[in-house]
Design a protein around this nucleic acid. Structure first.
Lengths: 197, 197
DNA sequence: TGGAAAAATTGCTTTCGATGCAGCAATATA
DNA sequence: TATATTGCTGCATCGAAAGCAATTTTTCCA
């Protein structure tokens, strides 16, 4: 059931080596000051090989976002019966908070680079559709109803403010909850004010 | 009062020639399929010179955003006494709508390219601080009060949804107003639900 | 177990955006 | 007119990204 041949194991290993080497170099000298050649050297592969694992240099920075998106989708899909999408999202963020204490400093790397910051926002925006779909389900909204999209967009944008203003350090679950809850309340109130359709 | 020597006049002219040539080529063959060499040729300057006028290829696409930001700042600063920031923003967008009927098709160019779309979002996000400042004034909010930032972020994000979903074509003032007003109401209601601080 | 097939890795080459530098030309100033 | 500014240009370089063909490694079947 889980054959995972030598091949796939090695691939995972190489990918991790690349990611790890890159993150370390980014943290050490900064994103721009690190070339793909540096990364390849540190990981023991050729520069060309990097592109077999990551479509671009930036994707090495953001490669964890994809699994996070998957986790969010699961959390929203499997939320308890009584809980609405906004509540499930809240819980997801709060419970993800402590995991974010990544010792590898990739968040600092992103924070230090204007381009990366901006692209992070874009990546987060990719979560919108998932959230919007869950909200649409709650609301029984049709495809022409923009309320879910608007609410989801507001949410992600507001979260981004939190992260930016929060300085990036208050990774304590209680703090996070205290910051998130007003945002959720904000969107809930807004949604109530919006007519269907 | 306005000496504007030959030199400055020529500079303006060259800049416009570059912008015009670039936009035309983008519209004709697409953004990626147009190289800086193509643009330089069409404008009658050297490739190197482009960088004297625009910091990057992308900035040729978004160069009008800066003046729009200035116009928004003015509109917010000089709003009539009885009008709040949200109302002024609404009016600004509605009255800007008809000007957006740019015959040069840059909006289509942006819409056709995923990267440009994402970067447009980032540019729009640069408006947030201006809007947030105006809202903060309305609310009498201090620098630690995140409500203005959250509201401004929600606004720009929601507007982006509108533009995306709206297909980009309903540039009639009445349509725009009909689309904007619910967004404004959404944010107003959200703000009311948010405690100060 | 041996060897063909599939897949991964690599070097090489090219394209393009971006930047530093130095010489030259056009403009401004005195 | 002489001189100082400023702009334009070519050139050379760097880094990211992508195509291609050769080579090595892994897999899988006879």
């Amino acid at each position: 059931m889980e054959p995972v041949g030598l091949r796939e194991r090695k691939k995972l290993q190489t990918r991790e080596a690349l990611r790890r080497a890159a993150w370390a170099l980014f943290a050490e000298r900064g994103y721009d000051a690190t070339t793909l050649a540096d990364i390849a050297d540190a990981a023991g592969v050729s520069t060309r090989t990097i592109f077999a694992y990551f479509p671009s240099k930036e994707d090495i920075v953001f490669c964890e976002f994809e699994s996070m998106r998957g986790a969010l989708a699961v959390a929203l899909a499997e939320r308890p019966a009584g809980q609405d999408a906004l509540g499930a999202l809240r819980d997801f963020i709060v419970s993800s908070a402590h995991e974010k204490a990544d010792g590898e400093g990739i968040e600092q790397v992103i924070a230090a680079d204007e381009t990366l910051r901006s692209h992070k926002r874009a990546r987060i925006a990719e979560f919108q559709d998932i959230v919007a779909a869950a909200i649409a389900e709650d609301l029984g909204a049709g495809p022409d109803d923009l309320r879910p999209q608007v609410a989801a967009a507001s949410l992600t944008a507001a979260f981004e403010v939190l992260e930016r203003e929060g300085g990036g350090k208050p990774h304590d679950a209680a703090d996070v909850a205290a910051a998130i809850d007003p945002i959720i309340a904000f969107v809930r109130a807004g949604l109530n004010a919006l007519p269907a359709g």
